[in-house]
């Protein structure tokens, strides 16, 4: 596409580099959504529209694609994303009990953000750390072998 006057500054300017990794602009959509999520915090309509405009894609298409993937957040989130696995391997090692701990301590329910805006909680399917379950991701950090005590200890290191 030779569209003159494409903006290269402003939000998501970094996408110009990412676009070079793919032969089509559409293919840059997922990395663009990751970038937008980092930049905007979550994928608001504003963020989605910015991605659409950067990649010359229809807005509805961008929203549809984003909504397919569970890690793209369609609503505002807390400062730290807590993603806890409750799939079979972690479940049999007690993951569900941890949800109760989080609810009690931080008022966190799955799919929700704590009232103080500190944590958002998402119940994950397997996160590939089954040998050391129960496990969770906080932002990009993997924490394993969680127990009621350890999960609190870990989360307290995130302000």
């Amino acid at each position: 596409m030779s569209e003159p006057g494409m903006v290269v500054e402003g939000p998501l300017a970094g996408l110009e580099e990412i676009k070079k990794q793919y032969p089509t602009e559409r293919a840059a959509l997922m990395p663009a959504l990751h970038a937008a999520q980092r930049e905007f915090g979550w994928l608001s309509h504003e963020a989605l529209a910015a991605v659409a405009s950067r990649l010359n894609l229809p807005e509805a298409t961008v929203r549809s694609t984003a909504s397919f993937y569970s890690m793209f957040q369609g609503k505002s989130t807390g400062r730290h994303a807590v993603r806890i696995c409750t799939n079979v391997a972690c479940m049999v090692l007690g993951a569900e009990g941890l949800l109760a701990v989080l609810n009690g301590l931080y008022g966190l329910a799955p799919g929700q953000t704590s009232p103080d805006g500190r944590f958002s909680l998402e119940v994950m399917e397997c996160i590939g750390a089954c040998d050391k379950g129960p496990s969770m991701l906080v932002n990009e950090d993997l924490h394993t072998d969680l127990s009621a005590e350890k999960i609190i200890e870990v989360l307290e290191t995130y302000e």
Binding site: R26, A27, A28, L29, M30, L57, Y69, S70, E125
Partner: peptide, 19 residues
């Protein structure tokens, strides 16, 4: 990827890689 088990299926993976 961004959290979709089905993308392990190779045609789904290809579509996902295509945006």
């Amino acid at each position: 990827g961004a959290g979709a088990y089905i993308c392990g299926e190779e045609t789904a993976l290809i579509d996902s890689l295509g945006g």
